[in-house]
Amino acid sequence: MVNVDKLSKAYGNRVCVWDVSFDVARGEILGFLGPNGAGKTTTMRMITGFIPPSAGTARVAGVDVTKDPLSVQSRIGYLCEAPPIYREMVVKSYLKFVAGLKRVPRAKQKVALERAIELCGLEHVQNRVIGNLSKGYRQRVGLAQAILPEPEVLILDEPTSGLDPLQIMEIRQRIRELSGEQTVILSTHILPEVTAICTRVVIINEGQIVAQDSIDGITAGGASDNVKVKVARDSDDLAQRIKALGGIQRMVRGEPGVYQLKLDREGEVRERLSGMLVESGAGLIELSPERETLEDVFRNLVTEEDTAA
């Protein structure tokens, strides 16, 4: 549904996003996880067409956002980091305005409006001025704005930031309720948030993707090593031999000769792997641990929920 291909963004000579690629399938909830300043917002802005990428492409439903932004934008709902609200407007008038802005057909506007108000729990405040609402409610208005046109793809930038734990649980519940209908990309710097809502995760640090996996793979990360292997002479036979080695949790074959492997930490797998590779005569060029970067990322992430109410 969403294909991000080698996306990069530089401001001046500072590279903020570098060579980011991932795909999101229909109905998936993708967690876009990374510490503050990792480049999450920048990436999402490129997907939504708010800023042009320096290189690479972002496609939604096969359409390149720089080629046909209006077509992409009519398929997405986007909640940016600071909810895009007009403080002086009444909630309902604001949502009506958004319905028009997103080209929801006039006949469907009323139903769409009621659905968004109900899903985001805004019934009691729909006639109040947005600027007078609490931060949590403003965030909900932002979420209502994003889901209102019933977009095929929902892009949420840190939808729970700045909320208290109760509000966080509520917003997460609302997002979970959407799953199945919509494809969701959600950014966060809080690890447990991803495990609570998402089906898959992409981890980004300093503008680069350091890992992408299913939720189970990431949470099991503590008991494994990630290594990158590069050989001069690749063959299918070699791939078979690596697999047969035992203790390999996962193997991804990238460009020819490059393998991303996830190894058991127990059982000296790395030692056996290097031995086998040298002895196979495939011409081992590189065997480097990727564990370091991932651990660095996790150290910078908020790994525990804020329990203080």
Partner: peptide
Amino acid sequence: KNGTAELLMTSPIT
């Protein structure tokens, strides 16, 4: 300033 530009410019309008 309010960040609503991001809403307008990611909406299907020219």
